[in-house]
């Protein structure tokens, strides 16, 4: 079930960072907004689970919009830092508000999330995401990543479409947050901090930026691997974060495009197997 939630998080961040090219270091913030909103609606107003989940996601999307309007004028590194900054501000607010329970968080959430609900959510998210990516909207996202200026020259209102990508990504992350809350039955602001954002980013990078299957694979590996390590030896699991760090660096140096990626052609050329393949093709051509 955790895998499913992480898959939703990874594919949604991939929409923002992988497809649209807007590096976000605050994706967990939207997960948190979804989790808190859904929980509060369910606990205080006794709204049914599914409705609460949707309200949580919609609220996250709304915040995505609000945060996106000012920050998405920024580019690259600046955007990354601004999203990080918003994430920290939001965590600070959650820590200090009464209604969110401050650092204690919210307890006593009923356990409703089950494997079927998660599976249905994952399928719906990936299905709708694929539909979006194959449409005029998704193509505009990729065009913005490829060349923002040329995208504008094609008549794409780049600011609006970046905000749209951000809001959709936030919506999905909000769903993941809601599922998370009703699975673990307890949430606090530190569940949704910078470290969680980085973890989601790691999944996307590992799988391959701009590739939904890659994000799914990355999320699966990074969810199972720590559990596996823990089952092998509790000592090793202490090194989980150290391992994350090394993984990111090595990944960037050895295979920056991730395990699966649509630029795998370049990799073929540079890898040993690729060289053999290219050579064979060249020989065939020569004969």
């Amino acid at each position: 079930m955790v895998i499913g939630i992480n898959i939703i998080l990874a594919v949604s961040l991939n929409l923002v960072s992988g497809f649209t090219g807007q590096l976000s270091l605050g994706h967990a913030t939207f997960m948190g907004i979804g989790a808190y909103t859904a929980t509060l609606f369910a606990l205080k107003l006794h709204v049914p689970f599914l409705v609460a989940l949707i309200i949580g996601a919609a609220t996250a999307a709304f915040f995505g919009f609000i945060i996106g309007v000012p920050t998405l004028r920024l580019k690259g590194d600046y955007l990354a830092i601004a999203t990080l900054g918003f994430g920290e501000i939001m965590r600070n607010i959650l820590l200090n508000l009464k209604i969110t329970g401050g650092p204690m968080g919210l307890r006593g959430i009923p356990k409703i999330t089950n494997i079927y609900i998660v599976a249905a959510a994952v399928i719906l998210v990936i299905f709708s995401l694929n539909r979006i990516m194959n449409s005029r909207v998704g193509k505009s996202f990729i065009a913005i990543r490829e060349d923002e200026l040329a995208a504008e020259a094609m008549g794409i209102n780049t600011t609006n479409f970046k905000i749209l990508a951000f809001a959709i990504g936030a919506f999905y992350a909000g769903i993941a947050g809601g599922l998370f809350a009703f699975l673990f039955r307890y949430i606090n602001p530190n569940n949704f901090g910078f470290m969680k954002s980085i973890e989601i980013l790691c999944m996307v990078v590992l799988g391959g930026m701009g590739n939904t299957s890659g994000a799914v694979l990355g999320a699966t590996i990074l969810t199972i691997l720590p559990e596996f390590l823990r089952s092998v030896s509790p000592v090793i699991s202490q090194y989980r974060m150290v391992f994350y760090g090394i993984l990111l660096v090595v990944m960037m140096i050895v295979r920056p495009q991730g395990l699966l990626s649509d630029t795998s052609f370049d990799f073929l050329k540079s890898s040993v197997f690729g060289k053999i393949k290219v050579k064979k093709i060249a020989e065939k051509g020569g004969q």
């Binding site: 709708s128 539909r131 979006i132 194959n134 449409s135 005029r136 909207v137 998704g138 193509k139 505009s140 990729i142 065009a143 490829e146 060349d147 200026l149 040329a150 995208a151 020259a153 094609m154 008549g155 794409i156 749209l164 959709i168 701009g210 649509d262 630029t263």
Partner: peptide, 29 residues
């Protein structure tokens, strides 16, 4: 030259028609 390098030739031309079309998120889904 500022093409959308990772996209197909066809998609590059499809993107060109962006401002003459209207499909939104819900239409896409």
């Amino acid at each position: 030259i500022r093409l959308f390098g990772e996209m197909s030739v066809l998609d590059n031309v499809i993107i060109g028609q962006h401002c003459r079309t209207n499909t939104g998120v819900f239409g896409a889904i």
